[in-house]
Design a protein around this nucleic acid. Structure first.
Lengths: 221, 221
DNA sequence: TAACGAACCTGATTA
DNA sequence: GTAATCAGGTTCGTT
């Protein structure tokens, strides 16, 4: 089911694995039969009640929006379309625009479908990553994790994957590796003290430590 | 501090007085170094709780809106911007539009700032006037008075002005003169019966007669 | 016609 | 004190 597999010699590098039977077999993989990508985190957004409510929009913090999704003059007026792939290879398109009245960047059209499909609630965290290929080749990846979870997406939580060596309290997709520069974090799945540093945030991973706020709002920068 | 002074020979006519030290020295006066204006009342709106509440809008009675602030087809769609000057020469801009859902004309953007700045409460009255110059030259003026007061604006109430010969229970800016065609109203600042007719409305000005409703809702037409 | 979505707005909070 | 940000709203056109 994984469309990308870690390169055994370098956990930063991910390579597509072909699986034509996957109904969500992504355009990315159809178009690019080979090649390597660097998967890197962009930012996270802990969802507010408004982000998952009736407003049908996700506010993207300005510093992240301007860094990763710059709008040129033309697209700034009418907004643009951003395409993402989720952990199943499913494609998601969102209208992305800037609201001058509130000076904020938002995902609008398509966002509510994502919220519904992923059953997102306030406090859940949406994770934005990108795969960078050769030159300016760049593909966006969207993921989420439940409030209080440090799992990067629902796949590991809801569908434990025997292929994945990371267990609960570790990070799938090599986040830890990339953040820790290949050095594996010292976490154990047994024992009373389970602590790790993820993306610059100290995280407790004991037996449900009442979801401390610093965990839910942990961000990459 | 007065930006306009009555013409000694005709109280209907007001002429700008220059005062470069006034921090609110208005564009009107900067642009028009000379000239005369006819100041005339348009209408008043006694403020409802909604007008000063969280709705951040002022409903303008339809007959007044259509008479004084007509919206053409183009501006009817997106609304327009109305500029006013207050008694201090400060400029106020309000978005003005028609809400089809409620069939009403409203001031929206900018209105809440005015309410806050003037400390307006329900029952207070907002006064709309215009200065008419040559041809179609027209400038809007916005003012307010406290609930139960017949003072035309806070200047006389809060900042007694030695230059102004009108005392409490009289009208500044020559309203009385213009309405009574130069004939001074028979009001006295002493005595048990203080009554005057202002813009066609009989007003009691006794010692705080429990703010009768007809006073608070007195209107020019 | 009811629901959705795009645009607009504002106040609390923060830097 | 001032300015920027953004969560939480509203309206209104579209479907």
């Amino acid at each position: 089911m994984n469309q990308l597999a870690q390169n055994p010699s370098n956990p930063w590098i991910w390579q597509p694995t072909m699986n034509a039977h996957n109904p969500h077999y992504s355009q990315m993989h159809r178009q690019q039969q080979e090649g390597t990508y660097i998967k890197e985190p962009m930012f996270e957004k802990p969802l507010t009640p408004s982000d998952v409510g009736k407003l049908n929009r996700l506010v993207i913090p300005k510093q992240h929006a301007e860094k990763y999704f710059p709008l040129d003059g033309e697209s700034g007026e009418k907004g643009s379309l951003l395409s993402f792939e989720d952990e199943l290879g499913k494609q998601w398109e969102f209208r992305y625009s800037y609201w001058t009245s509130s000076q904020s960047y938002v995902l609008t059209k398509g966002w509510s479908k994502f919220v519904k499909d992923k059953k997102l609630d306030a406090g859940d965290v949406v994770i934005f990553q990108r795969f960078r290929g050769h030159g300016t080749d760049e593909r966006f990846y969207i993921d989420s994790r439940r409030r209080g979870s440090i799992e990067a997406n629902s796949r590991v939580v809801a569908r434990p994957d025997a292929e994945n060596p990371w267990s609960s309290c570790a990070s799938p997709h090599g986040y830890m590796n990339s953040v820790n520069s290949g050095q594996q974090a010292s976490s154990s799945t047994r024992g009373s003290s389970r602590r790790l540093r993820l993306f610059g945030v100290n995280l407790e991973c004991g037996p449900d430590p009442a979801e401390p706020e610093h965990l839910a709002s942990g961000s990459w920068n």
